[in-house]
Design a protein around this nucleic acid. Structure first.
Lengths: 201, 201
DNA sequence: CAGAGTTACGCGAAACCAAAGCGAAAGTCA
DNA sequence: TGACTTTCGCTTTGGTTTCGCGTAACTCTG
């Protein structure tokens, strides 16, 4: 069910409030934030949001409103940007309009996410194989051991495990027949880290 | 049903508006954007779009139009029936109410589908590892080489590759440290074949 | 091909209803 | 008791619906 502008504003505020503080705002706090003079107004808004299924609340209990969408998180449709292997087809952002639907939770965090088709066997020992689709959270930094999509020298896009030691970075394939790459950190750009994997037989 | 040029424009505008702001435009806002002097015009367009199935709206409710495709976003939610390895936790049909959402196309065939959590390393060489979730199409027969969920002697549920030779069936793990099982076909029940795989990091 | 019928697209004004707001009072929980 | 939520009646503002009327484009048919 669709929301009005005000309802959306208030809903967003409540979500942020809950996310930030871990508890719900009181009607007065909401009223204060929107500079409303009467809590009755807020109360009505919340009733609307409840009846539209966006919020849940217990009757006459302080700070009992909560966003209902947490579990329901109507799931993500993310773009498939290209193929990753040893070529460099990542630059083309939003090239085709291909996209894929992934389970929520996999791309759940507000951080941007995208997907890439995997070509080649370079991560075979991590159980990632040719034809798989990896779901990638768009980030610019990674922690040791994470599987990342990296650009080396601004051109080659690869899927590797990431290890940083001092000012140097090792990009390690999970395939004993292939060699790790070790370069100064300045030559490596992280595009994201792998969050999920989808395979179709 | 096909749209006219104007209808398309208005439909696109509404979609973008909803995507951007999280709520629907009012008739006046739409009129303003297209420099129309009367909301009646917009109203008529919207009626057409509704009757052609592109929009939904509540009667006489502010900002209640919404693109049908967004809300309907069809994709499959299938039950996670249990864990598969060497135990036998498959019998319990619909045990918990756990479920997972998978990309359409993976469970697309209206043939029943379900999901299982994988425990153990018995399919490691097929790039299926501990903790993965496999999406299984419920079937009672399999072709050679397919990865199946099978019950041996009515009790043990396992994930193996399936090969039939005459009246005997070989169930082959993709792990060189484990032994194939070879038994008469009558002792094996196929529960389904693996269609997809989902992994969360 | 011309004219008839049909549909899409447009205007403006008036009627009507729901959302959004106020303030105060009453009720409820811990 | 004090920090909350509910409820009531009332106003204003913003949105929707419907009316009648008009033009332009497309399609059907003799």
């Amino acid at each position: 069910m669709a929301l009005t502008r005000r309802q959306r504003e208030i809903y967003d505020y409540i979500c942020r409030f809950v996310a930030d503080s871990g508890y719900s705002p009181s009607l007065e706090e909401i009223a204060a934030h929107f500079e409303l003079a009467s809590v009755a107004t807020v109360h009505k808004h919340i009733q609307h949001l409840v009846s539209k299924g966006y919020l849940r609340k217990a009757w006459n209990r302080s700070r009992s409103v909560e966003p209902v969408s947490v579990g329901t998180a109507d799931f993500a449709e993310i773009p498939v940007l290209g193929t990753v292997a040893a070529g460099s087809p990542i630059e083309a952002i939003e090239q085709g309009d291909e996209s894929i639907q992934v389970p929520p939770g996999m791309a759940g965090w507000r951080g941007e996410a995208f997907a890439l088709r995997v070509r080649g066997e370079s991560m075979i020992e991590d159980q990632i194989c040719d034809g798989d689709i990896v779901v990638v959270e768009s980030r610019e930094e990674a922690r040791n051991g994470e599987t990342v999509v990296a650009l080396v020298d601004g051109s080659e896009a690869t899927l590797k495990r990431f290890y940083r030691r001092g000012s140097r970075v090792r990009l390690v394939p999970a395939n004993r027949h292939m060699e790790p790459i070790e370069v100064p950190a300045s030559q490596v750009m992280i595009r994201g880290v792998v969050r999920g994997l989808i395979r179709n037989y």
